[in-house]
Write a protein that binds this DNA or RNA. Structure first.
Lengths: 222, 222
DNA sequence: GGAGAATTACAACGACCGTTGCACTTTCGA
DNA sequence: TCGAAAGTGCAACGGTCGTTGTAATTCTCC
């Protein structure tokens, strides 16, 4: 958490991170309305009063912090995986394209299991979009889906430049179709990662999605 | 609403429908936790007390009823559109395949605009899956996504039998890929239909999705 | 060890909520 | 027209919640 909420001593930062981390779990599980301040404080092993000392704005203030913080965390993880598996500078060998794309899809889907609190929180943001302050919504979009979508579009452009795929005129759409095909069914069936889908089923859906993507976007077709 | 909650007089039924319809709007906008019983009653133009007369179980009872009722409504609408646009008995002419699939995708996306309350409610169900009684979750799945997914798979099988598409071994997955490609981006960008996406952009995304689907599934390819 | 900051426990407040009981009024069919 | 069924307004209950104040306690670092 490189961006401190308010320029403060390292000791305060530690507690604030503990609070934000615990709050992410509670907000994700309960949602904003149901999450009581007492529960938020207890989850961080902290008295209610110190929560208000660190976040003068109370529950809303903490929520705002949590959203931007966790969104940044997950974005970094996602960008790292994308960079590692599909570096635009070093396109894969044609024979490895399917394998690499499958690995990328698996990595994306795996994020839901690695950051369940974050994605639970995002689901609540989606549902309560009307009640979330617009600035928070913007912060989330800027910290999460925005950069990732752009990076994925870049990666697709890289693959196209290497002659591996045909963008059919729209790199962003190709990226969106990749995530749609590789994650839509899994998100649907696993209730956004809540229900544990059998691993073999997950693999089958991912592989099917990647194959469909390649049929639609592999270079050298009609 | 052919299935009456409890076998009752027509007069009661009318009020119960009014209550359920209004409650769908309130629950969708506020979520379960935030929706107050007073607000639910007021939205139906009814006193709090009569709400409890019709739904002895109170808020939870009303919520249960609303979920199954609206899910059934939307399912019927969706099945009707699917039947009208892609009757398995009468497959389209090959030249019309792209046009018909585009129309179907447009119809599916249009549902979100036609039943905004329902989809808002579904979003809340997704987010609060932990707090929704399992029976309600099951009722929703049985009344909504389940039959629609099966019908779509059937339609895909029909297209394959007519030699129009190649299922690549899995009709259900083909159907899932169709909905993924045609709706994923729009759902994402429009925040589940909350933000009004420009019509031209919607059309562009739908058309792109259908074209990608056809590249992946049209018959007579490698 | 002691100054000063940080944290705690505790009580209290006003507000809202879900639910119920009761007496009263409206509605509607026979 | 009458009588039962349905609906209403109101008050009240126990409960939870967000938030704040205060005084006592713990921790950290010089």
């Amino acid at each position: 958490m490189e961006k401190a909420r308010r320029e403060v001593s390292p000791r305060k930062l530690e507690k604030q991170i503990a609070l934000a981390s615990a709050a992410c779990s509670v907000f994700g599980r309960e949602g904003y309305a149901r999450a009581s301040v007492d529960a938020l404080a207890a989850a961080a092993g902290v008295s209610t009063r110190t929560l208000y000392n660190h976040f003068p704005g109370g529950k809303a203030d903490l929520f705002r912090t949590v959203v931007t913080w966790t969104s940044g965390e997950v974005r970094e993880a996602q960008l790292a995986r994308l960079q590692a598996l599909l570096d635009p500078e070093r396109p894969p060998h044609p024979d490895d394209l399917a394998r690499d794309l499958t690995a990328l899809a698996r990595a994306f889907v795996g994020l839901m299991a690695d950051y369940p609190n974050h994605f639970a929180l995002v689901r609540h943001i989606h549902a309560e979009a009307d009640h979330v302050p617009p600035e928070v919504l913007e912060a989330w979009k800027d910290a999460g889906p925005g950069p990732v979508g752009r990076a994925l579009a870049e990666a697709m452009t890289g693959l196209a430049d290497a002659g591996l795929i045909d963008l059919h005129g729209d790199a962003a759409m190709a990226g969106a179709h990749f995530t749609a095909l590789s994650s839509h069914s899994i998100v649907q069936l696993s209730h956004y990662g809540v229900l544990p889908l059998p691993k073999e089923e997950t693999d089958r859906l991912i592989e099917g999605g990647v194959l469909a993507f390649l049929r639609a976007y592999r270079a050298g077709r009609a």
